[in-house]
Each structure stands twice: as C-alpha cells, then as structure tokens.
Design a protein around this nucleic acid. Sequence first.
DNA 1: CACGTTGTTGCGAATGGTTCCCATTACCCC
DNA 2: GGGGTAATGGGAACCATTCGCAACAACGTG
Lengths: 158, 158
Amino acid sequence: MTVEHRPAPRAPVGVDEVLARVREAGGRATTSRRILLERLFAEGSHKTAEELAHEVQAVAPDVHLSTIYRNLEELERLGVVTHAHLGHGPATYHLATETHGHLSCESCGATLEAPLGLFDGLAEAARESLGFEIDPRHFAVLGHCAACRAREAAAADG
Amino acid sequence: MTVEHRPAPRAPVGVDEVLARVREAGGRATTSRRILLERLFAEGSHKTAEELAHEVQAVAPDVHLSTIYRNLEELERLGVVTHAHLGHGPATYHLATETHGHLSCESCGATLEAPLGLFDGLAEAARESLGFEIDPRHFAVLGHCAACRAREAAAADG
DNA sequence: CACGTTGTTGCGAATGGTTCCCATTACCCC
DNA sequence: GGGGTAATGGGAACCATTCGCAACAACGTG
C-alpha cells in the first residue's frame, strides 16, 4: 500500500454532471456555480480563489469573492474539487479527477505535480519508523526546482 | 549528498554568545532581545511568535508582538533561529542548532521532528526524476500520525 | 405558471497571522 | 554623558479567508 487517504473522488466528467450531483445533494444549480465549474474544467490547474474570481467575473462581474470561496468549499465537500497549499501564499484549487502530490519551489513558486509513487520512499520510511502516514496532496513538499538550483549555483560561483 | 541548502547555521551556544554576534553585526543587545533569546534557549521548541510573546511578556509586559517578529526575523538573518510552517496556523520558531525535517499531523496538529535522512528516499526520487531538491525543514510534510490513524480506523469500523 | 420554501448570493465586517510606518526611546561608542 | 542610530511600542495596513445577514433566486408543488 502507498499513500492512500480520503474518499476517492468520483471523477466528474463535465459541468452538467457536477451540477446534477450538486442537485442530488440538495443544492442548486446557480449561474455562479456553473461559471465557476466551467473555469475549473478549463485548462490550467492550480488556480487561487482570487484568480478564479477574476475569471468568473469576466463573465459575471457581480460574483463576489466570498461566493467563490463558498462554492469551492461546497464542491470540495462533493469530492469534485481539492485545494492544495503550495507554500506561502493563497491555496490553489483544482479538479479532484487525478490525484497527485505537489512539489513547490520556494524560490520561484513553480509547482510540480508528481505521481504519488514518487513519495513512496518517504512514505515507507515515515510509516515504519514513526507510524506516520504522509499525504503529499493537501500540502506540497517544498524545495528548489532544477532551474532555480542552476541559477543559484551559478550566482554562488559568480 | 542528501538534503542540503542554506548557509549552515553556526551553533549558538548561549544567550550571551548570540548577543555578541548581534553586536558584531551592528545590532544592539536590547532587553527584549535578551529575554526572547532566553525563551528560545529554554526547553520546548516550535513555539509560535505569539507564544513567545506571552512568555516574554511574563517578564517584560511591554514587549510588543511586532517586536517579537522583528527580533525573530533578525535572529533568523544571523542564522540563530529558524521558522517552520507546520500546516495551517502560525509558523513556529526554534533554534537553528540542530537541523531536522518536520512531519505534521493534519488531524491533531502534532509535529514530529525527523532526521533529514528519513527524507532521503523522496529526495533522491525527486532529484533524479525532476531535478527537484526537496527541503523538509522550512515546510513540514503533512499527513496523519499513528495515534490519529488508529483513532480514525477505529471510528471507521464503528 | 404563480408560490413558497429554502439554498444562495452580495456585501461588508470580522478574523488570524504578519508586516509596515512613525514618532519616541535607549543602546553604546567616543 | 551626549549624540548618532538601531530598536521599540503602538497601531494601522495587509492578505487570505470566514462569517453574518438581509435580499434574492432555484425549483418542487399545486
């Protein structure tokens, strides 16, 4: 067994499917919800609530940031969306379709998605020596990306 | 080589040594600085700025929280103190004498200090497949501790 | 399709953690 | 023991997020 927690999210296929699920759960298919979902299904993942708000507001200017937060929270409860903390700065949200761990560069903020298998070495070590089960999805593992390391090494040589 | 960044902190031996170093660097040995250092050298690590403020204020009630933050920042610049982010909630500060990685439980907030060697498996995997050099000191790797896993497993069984 | 229930929204205020600004204080070098 | 300047207290500002509340709008029902 590798890293494995939380209810496995049922893959949402599209906006309408998700809205149907929202209604099943007693919720309503509001326009702000629909637009937000369209933005989440659009390419480019790991968006902050504020970025999503801007995108949504390009279509529906009155949608308030707090509505974005509330909808993200609701979608997360349904297992459609997840958020990840990538170091300093705001959380980022993405579809819960594919699960992956996060590596984030402390220097430039770049985020790498990594298959959970990458974390198996640490997962095993932590589990065996401490009984601790890591989860690299909700919080990124920080460090320094290749580009920044190269740049920093070059600067150090100077 | 394993996980290894940042200037290796010269081990500070005591409050007075650190204050001497502060002065070398053009700083001044103020009372708030001294008391803060005494608290940092006292046992019990991973204290938040606010906890440290309370401890300092028990001795010198007028020391302001912003002074604590400024002093911690200054001490960090000198390599005497480090801070770590352990998930949600405020950062924690501790002496930079001994370097270790952090594992933090998402359920109960417990923090485990782990030797950097524990992270070697992931460090190698990330370096080799992505050129990414992890640093488990500044940001904790999150997950679930043994106690919480046991409790959660029991609850799931019902 | 009008109606009422109730989930949602917009908005602003509140929160928690941290940083910034600024006039005053107090180190400490001579 | 006076002067230059680092540091302080205090509070305002800041960012990300949450909350409270009155107005609104979905949508099942009649």
